[in-house]
Design a protein around this nucleic acid. Structure first.
Lengths: 158, 158
DNA sequence: GTCGTTGATGTTATGATATAACAATGGAGT
DNA sequence: ACTCCATTGTTATATCATAACATCAACGAC
C-alpha cells in the first residue's frame, strides 16, 4: 500500500506531470479537458488538500471564470468521472487524484484539522467488501474508504 | 464478516431487542435515553434503511415532537456518539446500528436506489488502513467504509 | 429547602452543500 | 452552411447542517 503522505515534496513537478497525464488520458479517451476543467484540476493539485466546491468556485470567481455553483460542480463531476479527482465524503470536499493512471479503489487518511489528505491505493477492502457483496448479490458501483483523524503536524500543534 | 443483509426478517423483534440493549447500555454508562432520543432510535430501527435528518424530523413533526432541524440533529448526534446509529456519508443519511454491543468499525453495502443498507463488521480495512496510518504517524478517530451500488431487489427492478 | 449548575430541549435564523431547468454558445462532422 | 450535441452561463431552489440564545427540569451543595 503505497501512500502518498504528509511529507513535503515538489508540488510544481507533480502538478505539471499530472496535468500532462490528464491531457494524454483525455486524448486517448476522447474527453475534453476544457480550460475550466483544466484550471479546476490545476487548482486542486496546487492546493494539495481537500477543497469544497465553493472553495473552488471562489478561485474561479477571482479569475473571472464562471461564479455560479453549477460551474464548479460540473468541473468536479468531470474530474471525478475521469478519475482525475476524488470526492472525500467525510468532508464534502474534493481532491486531485494522487495515483493518476492506475485504475484504483482509493483509500484516504484525512486530517480533519488542516484538511490535508493522504491517498493510499487499496485492494484490501475491495477484497473483503467485494466478497461480502458477492455473497449478498450486491452490485458495487463505488467504494468509499476514509480514515478521519489528525495528521502528524496537527497532532503536534494540539 | 457477518453481514446483516437484504433478507427479510422479524423487524419487531429486532427493534425491541435493540431498544432493550440501548437502555441497558445507557444505564451502565450514565447516558440518558430521553423520550425523543428513544423515539429517534425506534424510527430508525423501524425504517431499517438510511434516513435523512429531515426525514426523521418529519416523523417527529407528525407526532407533535419538535420540528426544528436541531431537534433531529441532536438526537442523531446522541445516537451516533453512543454507537446506536451510524452516519452513511455517501447518502448524508443515518441508520440504526445493526451490531449493538460489539465495539466495531462498521462497513456498509448501500443501495443507492432504495437506500436499504447492509451493515458488516470489518476488521480488514482497519488492519490495512491502520497499518498505513501508523506508518504515517496518523491518528485515526473514525473510519468510513461504504460500498455504494444496487441491492439484489433493485437490480431485478432495473 | 433553595440555590446554582448542568444538560436537554425549543426556537429563530443562517450557513453550507448541491441540483433542476432552461437559454446561449460553439465546435465536429456532414 | 447546417445540424447535432456537449459545454457553458444563469437563475432559482432544494437539501443538509449548525450557531446562538432562551427555557426548563434534574440534581447536588450548602
Amino acid at each position: 500500500m503505497a501512500a502518498i503522505g504528509f511529507d513535503p515534496h515538489d508540488h510544481s513537478a507533480c502538478i505539471s506531470s499530472t496535468l500532462r497525464q490528464a491531457e494524454t488520458y483525455c486524448a486517448e479517451h476522447k474527453l475534453k479537458l476544457t480550460p475550466i476543467r483544466r484550471r479546476a484540476l490545476e487548482i486542486l493539485l496546487a492546493e494539495h488538500r481537500a477543497l469544497g466546491a465553493y472553495d473552488l468556485l471562489s478561485h474561479f470567481a477571482a479569475e473571472g471564470l464562471g461564479s455560479a455553483p453549477p460551474v464548479a460542480y460540473r468541473a468536479l463531476d468531470f474530474l471525478t468521472s475521469a478519475g482525475f479527482a476524488h470526492k472525500i465524503e467525510g468532508l464534502n470536499a474534493y481532491i486531485a487524484c494522487a495515483h493518476l493512471g492506475s485504475d484504483h479503489a482509493p483509500a484516504f487518511l484525512i486530517c480533519t484539522a488542516c484538511k490535508s489528505v493522504a491517498e493510499a491505493e487499496t485492494e484490501a477492502s475491495d477484497g473483503r467488501l467485494g466478497a461480502a457483496a458477492r455473497a449478498a448479490g450486491f452490485q458495487i458501483d463505488r467504494i468509499v474508504v476514509e480514515a478521519l483523524g489528525l495528521c502528524p503536524t496537527c497532532q503536534d500543534a494540539a
